[in-house]
């Protein structure tokens, strides 16, 4: 127990929580936007892989860090547009199309990586985002290191959560998005296009997923590795359910989850890590995600029209 307390009072633990949460926050928000509009986006895992690759590759090729993030965002939006085209106007199975997009995006990233860097054994590094020094706040003992030693991209993740909550609940656009996922007939009755709203939501959401992936290569690490997303996309889908499709709760879920993840990494270094095989620690995030789904299953407030295609001719 003392080991756990030691970990919890260390400033580096809390800094790690924020760092680990950042890509999850971006991608969870992205998935949340899609699902609130009524579209399940299983392309998330692959779009994160492609975002991780595209942002890193852009910087490696000579672009700045922020333009790199923009490249990742646009690439994610492109895959989102494909997903949206197939699932919204054509109303194809969101499961099948989503998994297809994940395969397409992942293999495209790997193909492009091999073309750009044939025969490299260790991927080249870029100069990633550095922690922002905030006057006064960053200099507070303990707290400064724990909470105010993050990169700009982490701050962007939190800003994004606030922005998504604001747009969803305080603007007509947000109302339209939510209505498209709850009661598409009513949206059409208002003279709005369900198809346009849903496609827009999927495209924007997919862009955020790609930025989440880009965080991994441009802020958390400095190179691109195969398998580096490693199921984070699927975990984000669980986080959307855990957060009851609300941005604030999803943000808290991501932080809680990141807390457990940061804890298991540190526990591996303690005497406990000598006894328990490391694979057990690595399983914790996935097991937690399943537990979160079970926990929330009773009171999940699923958008009523999630996964229901809308065809204007049908009643």
């Amino acid at each position: 127990m003392t080991e756990i307390v030691d970990i919890l009072i260390s400033a580096s633990f809390w800094a790690a929580v924020l760092r680990i949460a950042s890509p999850l926050i971006f991608a969870t928000l992205g998935e949340l936007i899609c699902e609130r509009a009524g579209v399940l986006n299983l392309g998330i895992e692959g779009i994160m892989v492609f975002g991780a690759f595209a942002g890193w590759m852009a910087v490696y090729a000579g672009l700045g860090l922020w333009p790199g993030v923009l490249v990742a965002l646009l690439a994610g939006m492109a895959f989102g547009a494909l997903h949206a085209l197939l699932t919204v106007p054509f109303g194809l199975s969101q499961h099948v199309v989503g998994l297809g997009i994940t395969m397409l995006a992942t293999s495209s990233a790997y193909y492009a990586y091999r073309l750009a860097l044939p025969e490299v054994t260790s991927p080249p590094r870029i100069a990633p985002f550095q922690p922002l020094h905030i006057p006064v706040l960053s200099d507070i003992p303990w707290l400064g290191q724990a909470l105010f030693s993050q990169t700009a991209l982490t701050w962007a993740a939190f800003g994004c959560a606030a922005l998504v909550a604001l747009v969803l609940y305080r603007t007509p656009l947000g109302l339209a998005v939510r209505a498209a996922g709850e009661n598409p007939q009513a949206v059409e009755a208002q003279g709005l296009s369900v198809a346009a709203i849903r496609m827009g939501a999927v495209i924007v959401g997919s862009g955020l997923m790609a930025v989440g992936g880009a965080f991994l290569t441009m802020s958390a690490f400095s190179s691109f590795f195969f398998e580096m997303v490693n199921g984070r996309g699927w975990i984000c889908i669980a986080l959307v359910v855990f957060g009851a499709w609300k941005p604030g709760k999803a943000l808290l879920g991501a932080l809680l989850f990141a807390g457990f993840d940061a804890l298991q990494i540190r526990l591996q270094q303690t005497p406990m890590g000598q006894v328990v095989p490391y694979q057990v620690f690595l399983m914790i995030p996935y097991v937690l995600s399943i537990l979160a789904l079970i926990l929330m299953s009773r009171r999940a407030e699923v958008p009523a029209a999630l996964m229901t295609p809308f065809n204007r001719g049908e009643r």
Partner: peptide, 13 residues
């Protein structure tokens, strides 16, 4: 509980 996510996560476990 949605089986898509649980079966996917079980692959990693």
């Amino acid at each position: 509980v949605d089986e898509v996510v649980t079966t996917l996560l079980l692959n990693f476990i």
